[in-house]
Write a protein that binds this DNA or RNA. Structure first.
Lengths: 218, 218
DNA sequence: GTATTATTAGAGTATATACTCTAGGGAGTC
DNA sequence: GACTCCCTAGAGTATATACTCTAATAATAC
């Protein structure tokens, strides 16, 4: 594996584990047993590393949120989208943690991230639309669908922070993918009142699979 | 005004404006035209300052979320709670921005914040319960109410971050209380499907007051 | 007034952080 | 061997950051 790729991989790992703020370029170099000079040969600065990681994240999510238009949507499709999005969120979980600072540090990233958000919101909205077309949820006008999509986005992107701050032991490190996916339970909660009766049981069963084992609220 | 209070006030202002990460103790001292030594006479360290600010925040929110049990709830009450919560969010907006790092830096804060979250969730749930008792929304079982409350919390606490990242110009500084309160629109969106028919128009009118002037989605 | 305490100034420090600079090694080509 | 190009080491640097220490001043008590 090329040094450049190793740097990206190692950075992502350390960022996810400790948070971007707590990981210096010297840490990354030390962890890879390469010199700082070597790291800076491959990347101009820290925001550059982060930007490249974002591009990977973006690519991943865009790939999974590419909604096929040639067939009707199923509940399984929806489950797949949710699983994919939360997997992505997990793999790049450092990103949303320090998002504001990261965007302030890199205008490119700010610009790209804004477009990325817009694409995600459109995709969510389109999923709702297709779920309605398939008769899985009731049809809603565009205004409401946009507001609902935004709420879905807010729940998804904030679920990790909630877990890390409100749950667990003394440190925020102990967090598993399983716990993260309980966010799917929360997202599906948003859909409940809109479910078509004939699909209600199926979606509720799907939701049940992600129910938090411990009560969410003390 | 006592120096100690001036430090707290100035810190809060600077934190809100620039983010905690970008504000050093030296900045605070310089901004107040006092010496670093003076600042450290009043506070042991930076987390101490932040902790005290949190205590104020906590007190404010607890005060507004004290649900009176001696009378039925009205739509106006709900509007008041929403306004209050978003005002609090605005006044201490730095807090949720760097939350994870702050909690990692101070075990006291982590412990207290967790309890704070629990109280907020309970209050939200209680509000839903009382809204149902008053016939404003339909009654839901406890499970669903808890999940809904959590979603409300997630939307509220993430709305600011969304605005700062997805909206506006090159910097994230340009953000107004008016824009922030459009989060109320999003929260009320969550309630729509549960509204009792006889109150639907009233709540929808309230919601309309907070509709974003620019389209939320590009 | 004097003793005591609370407050303040301001220089200073240890450490960290992002990043630079120079020198050179290794592989391929002629 | 000499030249070139890509890569790497590692010492070094400018700056920032949180925080300390000492001494002096203001406030208060007696």
């Amino acid at each position: 594996m090329k040094t450049r790729d190793k740097i990206l991989l190692c950075s992502l790992e350390l960022f996810n584990e400790r948070g971007e703020r707590n990981v210096t370029t010297n840490h990354i170099a030390a962890h890879l047993a390469i010199s700082p000079g070597n790291l800076y040969y491959h990347f101009r600065n820290k925001p550059d590393i982060i930007y490249e990681i974002f591009l990977e994240y973006e690519k991943l999510v865009d790939f999974y949120l590419d909604i096929p238009e040639d067939r009707a949507m199923t509940v399984d499709d929806m489950a797949f989208y949710l699983e994919s999005v939360f997997n992505g969120l997990w793999s790049y979980r450092f990103f949303h943690r320090d998002l504001e600072y990261l965007l302030d540090s890199d205008p490119r990233l700010r610009r790209d991230y804004r477009k990325f958000t817009d694409r995600c919101l459109s995709a969510i909205s389109r999923i709702f639309e297709k779920l309605a077309e398939a008769g899985i949820i009731r049809h809603q006008d565009e205004d409401l669908r946009a507001a609902m999509s935004l709420n879905v986005w807010l729940v998804i992107t904030n679920w990790m922070a909630y877990l890390k701050t409100a749950l667990g032991g003394e440190d925020s490190a102990s967090l598993s993918l399983v716990e993260l996916k309980q966010g799917i339970y929360q997202v599906l909660t948003l859909e409940i009142p809109y479910l078509a009766p004939e699909y209600r049981d199926q979606v509720m069963a799907l939701r049940e699979k992600y129910r938090p084992s411990l009560p969410v609220q003390a």
